[in-house]
Design a protein around this nucleic acid. Structure first.
Length: 105
DNA sequence: AACTTGACGTGAC
DNA sequence: AGTCACGCCAAGT
């Protein structure tokens, strides 16, 4: 028996891998897409253990910020840089313009 | 087993 | 537009 947690993790990595370059999705919306929905907070916890082949930087908070910055400022900057390289639109406030580049499966 | 901590979201002010 | 309080719930201590 695989376990519900591991299956959810697999599904999560599958979903994130489907996000095209130049687009983003929020933690909460990602959770809603799963067979057994998870809250944004839980998705965030799981993202911390994302395999290296998962484009974790395309997942942002609902308001277009990087909550990761509170704990790891370095990682936050890396995320912003990666998104800018993909031509993701930013607002003057430094947040991602999520309404202009959100991924819808 | 109890308590704390967040890679979040929402609503109130 | 920016804060804040609160609900959320898996993991860590």
């Amino acid at each position: 028996m695989a376990g519900l947690l591991n299956r959810s993790l697999d599904e999560l990595w599958r979903l994130v891998r489907r996000i095209p370059a130049g687009q983003v999705i929020s933690y909460g919306d990602l959770g809603k897409l799963m067979k057994h929905p998870a809250t944004g907070r839980v998705v965030g916890r799981w993202m911390a253990q994302a395999p290296s082949d998962v484009p974790w930087w395309r997942v942002v908070a609902r308001d277009g910020t990087f909550p990761i910055g509170k704990r790891g400022p370095k990682l936050s900057l890396e995320q912003e840089q990666l998104l800018r390289e993909e031509a993701v639109p930013f607002l003057n406030s430094g947040r991602v313009d999520i309404s202009a580049c959100s991924w819808e499966p």
